[in-house]
Write a protein that binds this DNA or RNA. Structure first.
Length: 290
DNA sequence: AGATTCGGCGT
DNA sequence: ACGCCGAATCT
């Protein structure tokens, strides 16, 4: 092992380490690569014995900002984080090319939506470098003892609009498929177009650990800017019937069946390929007597 | 297999 | 010029 000088990185949550490795040879000798390592997870069995468990993502290595950003999700706004130096650089806003200016609709066809951007985080530069908890104890006040991490950062209202035009596609940019939502799911606020609504709900399901109910406050209909529940997607409150659940179960079963079939077929194909190669190998070998 | 390292594409 | 990530190489 090379002397690894992993240093703490104050701009990231506690436990994250930064490492810089100088390239020793080749055309790029002298240049360096920067890596980050996620904090080890401590699992407590007995409060007195802490143990590091091996099969968790502890100490995972990160080699680019997008990769780091994907992992941290909305936990940390990396908007002004400089990967190379490991510091927050105020005044380094998103460098999206003055899009939206000319043709807001071009988003849907030509330009791809920002995949760099973690979804529900504010895009504006925060006046705070990091989430801050101000601890002032007054008699009778309860102060959160746990300075862990402000679990919820401010969210941009209507951030879902940035999901407009997001579609799944394969490597050749072919759009793979679109999905239809049940009528009965309706958007709230500006831009209630269907695809945005779908993206918003999918994101909500993906990112939230609490139930997705949609906007339950009736007032949100009239004045979303005030009454919006920012922890719910821009969607009217909806109900899911038992019938719909059964339909969905059926779909999942069918999907699992076809996946099973595909895997089976693939396995057979591989097996056949292997035996064919072995046969050829044998036929060409001196021991075959041919 | 996983970690390390450099090349080289895209911007 | 540099960020990012594929893949050759090393252990």
């Amino acid at each position: 092992m090379m002397e690894k000088k992993r240093s703490d990185c104050p701009a990231l949550p506690p436990g994250w380490k930064k490492e810089e490795v100088i390239r020793k040879s080749g055309l790029s000798a002298g240049k360096s690569d920067v890596y980050y390592y996620s904090p080890p997870t401590l699992w407590k069995r007995d409060p007195k014995k802490e143990k590091t468990v091996s099969n968790d993502p502890s100490g995972k290595k990160f080699r680019s900002k997008p990769q780091l950003s994907r992992y941290l999700g909305n936990k940390v706004d990396l908007g002004c984080f400089d990967f190379r130096t490991g510091k927050m650089m105020p005044g380094k806003l998103q460098k999206s090319k003055q899009r939206l200016r000319h043709d807001p609709l071009s988003l849907a066809k030509g330009g791809k939506p920002d995949l760099n951007t973690a979804l529900p985080i504010r895009q504006t530069a925060s006046i705070f470098k990091q989430p801050v908890t101000k601890v002032t104890s007054h008699p009778g006040n309860k102060v959160k003892a746990d300075l862990q991490r402000a679990s919820e950062q401010p969210r941009q209202l209507f951030w879902e609009r940035r999901l407009k035009g997001l579609q799944s596609s394969d490597v050749t940019e072919e759009v793979l498929r679109t999905m239809d939502l049940p009528i009965g799911l309706q958007g709230v606020g500006p831009d209630s177009s269907g695809d945005t609504l779908l993206s918003a709900i999918a994101s909500a399901l993906h990112m939230s650990s609490t139930p997705i109910t949609g906007q339950t406050a009736a007032a949100a209909e009239k004045n979303p800017a005030i009454w919006l529940n920012t922890s719910q997607p821009l969607c009217r409150a909806f109900t899911v019937t038992d019938e719909q659940i059964r339909e969905q179960e059926l779909k999942v079963h069918q999907a699992r069946r076809s996946l099973e079939d595909a895997l089976m077929a693939d396995g057979l194909a591989r097996a056949a390929e292997n035996t064919r190669e072995q046969l050829e190998e044998f036929l060409c070998s001196p021991t075959s007597g041919l």
